[in-house]
Amino acid sequence: MIDFIAGVLTSANYWFIVLRSTAPILLVTLGAVITEQAGIKNMALEGSMLWAALTGVIASAATGNAWIGLAAGIGASVLVALVLGFFALKLDANAVLCGVALNLVATGGTVFVLFSLTGDKGISSSLPSKVLPSLTIPLVKDIPWIGKVVSGQNIIVYISALAVVVIDLVLRRFTIGRRIRATGENIEAARAAGIDPIRIKFLALIVSGILAGFAGCFLSMGYTSNFTSGIAAGRGYVANAAQVVAGGTAVGSIFAAMLFGLMDAMATFLQNVGMPPELIQALPYAVTILGFVVVTFIRDRREAERKRRLFSGNGSGGSGTGISHARTPRSKAQGLTHGM
């Protein structure tokens, strides 16, 4: 067994699948990160992905063009995010509950639409849908091992890597990132500064919708070449947990999503050695929860330790200046307190 796992872990094939499995979860995790930073929980990511996956398939089948499919899928996904925004931000509805409702609509609605169009409830194979292309990267493809892992992936996998860079820049370098953080951290302060928090939250929702759109289309037009009912398989929920593991940062999202990707990819291999598929399928979800618990546990320990240190270093005597000795922990302000 250990030999087998060691063999798997060193094979380029495994890591190729890891990247492929990580990409969709990475995209939605980024979506969860940006909405969480803006102070709104996008529980509808699951629904966004489902609608994107179906719309992509239908549009690409209708036009014969995968790119139009992708655009339509992203459009559908953003629409879900906007509906969530409308109910949660304009009608003061509980955002989490609305997200759940939209997921319910998506679960049944996608099947309903699929059935109305094809007469089949399970799979879209009767639709002549297209898939998004894979890219072979010149030069890189010739590097032994690495070339096999990195090159030849679907274009969305590269887009997911690009998305990390973009979201990271947006959050840390651009003014809009500061406004998003201000909105999420102290909405009153943002409003008093003349920022319209509703607009910021809508913006974050739209971005998360676009990201979930890429992820959803990838599932039905790259990862597989069909829409199947429930194709998102809870990835939208996993993203909301992974967001916490990511610590609210774009770069952290890579590790959080990778955790799920590693397990997801391992499942394919474990099945070959006779592990019951049911248990293997449960693994990514269980590991995500476990990852969450471990990360939170470590953070709590560190926090307690830091407080103790601060106190012993700072325990006596006040200061005459307007500034106190202690530094604010950055993590405190960044999503850590939100939970997953």
Binding site: N186, A190, R191, A193
Partner: peptide, 16 residues
């Protein structure tokens, strides 16, 4: 109406 994790300068210019 201030954002604790941002600096004074960032708070001052927030929104503009």
């Amino acid at each position: 109406m201030l954002v604790p994790s941002l600096s004074a300068a960032e708070n001052l210019v927030l929104g503009k």
